[in-house]
Structures are given as C-alpha cells and as structure tokens.
Amino acid sequence: MLYFDHCASTPPHEEVIRTLADVMKLHYANPSSIHRAGAEAAKLMERSRVLAAGLFGTKPKEWVFTSGGTESNNLAVKGAARAFRSRGNHLVTSQIEHPSVYEAFRSLEREGFRVTYIPVSETGHVDVRDVQAALTDDTILVSIMHVNNETGAIQPVEAIGRLLKGRPKTLFHVDGVQSTGKLAVEPVDWGIDLFTVSAHKLRGPKGAGWLYVRDGVGLEALLHGGDQEGGLRAGTENVPAIVASAKALRLAIESQPERESRMYALRARLLRGIDGIAELVPSGPAAEADEGGRGTVDAPMAPHIVHFCYPGMKPEVAIHLLEKHGVVASTKSACSSRQDNPSRVLLAMGREGACAAGGIRLSLGDEHDDRAIDLLTERLATVVRKLKPLEKRGAERDV
C-alpha cells in the first residue's frame, strides 16, 4: 500500500514508539505530585520543553503543551482575542485557514468580535497588501497559516511579521502544523507571537501538540482547573506523549533541510506525471512555471503536498478506487473530509463548483522515493481511465 496522506497523519518513528512505551511503563506518576516519582515525571516533561525551545531558538517557558493542533489554535485565537479585548475588537484571518482556526473566528464573531477574512489569489496565496489594508486601530490579532493544509500554498508569514512589527498591540498567530519539519521556521526572527505545532503531523504520537506563546503575551485559558502549564492548560499532562513528541520534533527539525530538498524533487516528479493526465487540474502554479516543485516566487508551494482537481468527478469515488489500486490519498482536511460539500479553500481560490467539489490531495512522507512516485502516477492514470465512463454519464445528466 502506498500511503500518500501524510497531511492527515504520519506513521510514527520506531524510536518515538519505543520512547512512548518506555515512559508509559516507567514514569506513570502524576507530574504535579510532590513525591519522587512525580518529580521524575515532571523533570522529563521539562526536559522536553527545554528541547522544543532550543530547536526554535526560544525560551522554555514560552511553550505550552496541549492535546494537539486544534487545541493550540483555539487557545491562541480565542485566548488572545478575549485577553486583549480591551485594546479593540477587530481580528484578521484568511478565507483558507484550517477549520480549527476558521471556526474559532466564527465563534468569536458570535461573541461580538469583528473579523476580516482576507481573500487569496487563484493559487491560494494571501497578499500582504490585503493584510495591511485590513488593519485598523482596533486590530488586536492577525492569524495566517504558514502552509495551507489542502493545497500546500506557502503563505508570506515572514513578510506579515515585518508588517506587524511596528504594531505592538496587534498579536500575530501562525498555524505551523503543516510546515514544521518540512520548511525552516523562525518564530522569533519572523515576529510571531503565537505558533502552533502538532506532533502526529511529524511522525509523533496523536494527542500531543505545542503552542509557542511569546514571553509577555497573556492568554485567557480555555480549560479551568489546576495551574498546569502556567495556568493556561488545566489538566494532568500526558507525559509519555510529551516526551515522545519532543523526540519526534527533534528528529523532524534536524532532518528538515534534507527532507525539504528531497521532497521538492519528488514533488516535481509527481507534478510532471499529473501534467500528462489531461483530466487532472493542478491547484497551484502551472506545471511549466513550477521551479523544481517549489512553485513560483509569487506562489511558493510546500515540498510535501500536491493538490489537483478532477472536475465532474466526486472525489470520494476517486479516493476509493485509488485505494483499491493500493494508493491512500485524501480529499481535503481530514477534519472536513466526511462533509459532502465543495472545498471552502478551493472556492476562495475562485475554482468553479465542479472543480471545488472534486479536489484530491496527495501528501508525501519520508518513505517515498522515485519508484513510489512513478507507481503513484501509473495508478492515477489507471484510475482516471476507469472513471471516464462515470464522468461522461455525469456530464450527460447535467445537460
């Protein structure tokens, strides 16, 4: 089976699995307990915090352990908006954010906040000038993802950080779930106040994540109870998952430059293969304009994601037939893939309904090589040939 759904979740490293099991077996005490076993568990957790901080050039106290990307995004967005409401009630985000960010902003609108949803280009990219135009004296938070989880479009977060540098009352949150371990990330240099990471997207365990909270930024907690995580995240910490996810984070970041280079080459190879299948429409820059799988200067793309549309074909039909041919792929965000409606991201990019409803995402992992890409391309072509009669019947029904 060829697994091309790494954006949804990744196979954990063997080292990570062993670490998780060892800590579960040996360090099961509550890290808040005052006895020696509790202190040892707490020490392991703090070592993980120090490790994460060092990998990003930040301070250990700036990292909050959470249950994953969704919780981190909600804590960042809702926690910042509610904590700083006295400064203003205007928020800025984009039309293509992950549901855990987008729906958090929708929730804040119901609380009385005013939200501006920035549009994107036809390749799915935010324009910094649109962010600048949206800013007002009441803007207290801007949240823009680093890499779009459906299309792989890299957003100009570094440039947005520079834009916001002279606005001390406006916080900047970046969802880094799809970029960490794939691209270089510099939260401090880029002026990021809040940064989200999820362990299972980088070969760590599910149920573990981080939120970078720049020193001096106060958030309103979502969960109330004990004073764990500096009062920002009540509840007994999942020490085994924290320690295992720190190991996965270290492995991902240390190998990031090599992974980025290798995956861009694989992405370029896959794009060339898809370009030879007339029925498939890539969602990023045109294949002939793409520089080695990297997209273009104005429309950069992440190394591990290839997204295309099959207009006139229900994506779940194509996904299930691909699976019968030994390929695991996906439609959109795993959080939304069971919803039978056009992609909000593709609609924001100006795609017509048939294309927006027929998106397919392929996401690469460490196990892939040229042979895997060639097999994938061959099986895509086979599936398209088999689906052609269905496509024709669907077109006849629409007449």
Rank of each mutant, 00 (worst) to 15 (best):
D5C: 10
P11C: 02
R18D: 14
D22S: 12
K25I: 00
N30F: 00
A41R: 03
K43V: 04
K43R: 14
L44T: 10
G54C: 10
G57L: 10
P60Q: 10
E62R: 09
W63N: 04
F65E: 05
E71K: 05
N73Q: 06
A76L: 07
A80I: 03
A81S: 10
A83F: 11
H90C: 03
L91V: 08
V92H: 01
S94F: 00
E103G: 00
R110K: 15
Y117W: 12
V120M: 02
T123G: 00
T123D: 02
V126F: 01
V131L: 05
Q132C: 05
T136L: 06
T136E: 08
T136S: 15
T139W: 02
N149C: 14
N149R: 07
G152T: 04
I154A: 06
G161K: 02
L163A: 06
K165Y: 04
P168Y: 00
P168M: 01
H173L: 04
G181C: 07
K182D: 04
A184H: 08
S198W: 03
S198G: 14
R203S: 12
K206E: 14
K206Q: 13
G207W: 04
W210S: 07
L211V: 11
Y212E: 07
R214C: 06
H224S: 10
G225R: 06
G226C: 09
D227I: 07
D227N: 12
D227E: 13
G230I: 04
R233T: 05
R233Y: 09
A234D: 08
T236H: 02
A241Q: 10
V243M: 06
A244V: 07
A248P: 09
R250K: 14
Y264N: 13
L270D: 06
G276R: 15
I277D: 04
E279K: 11
E279L: 08
L280S: 03
E291F: 03
E291N: 10
R294C: 12
T296V: 11
V297Q: 12
P300T: 06
P303E: 07
C309E: 11
K314Q: 13
P315V: 07
I319K: 14
H320P: 00
S333D: 14
C335R: 13
S336K: 07
S337Q: 15
D340L: 11
S343Y: 01
V345I: 13
L347R: 15
L347E: 13
L347Y: 00
G353W: 05
G358S: 15
S363N: 09
D366M: 10
H368V: 04
I373S: 04
I373A: 04
E378T: 12
A381E: 13
A381C: 02
T382L: 14
E391M: 14
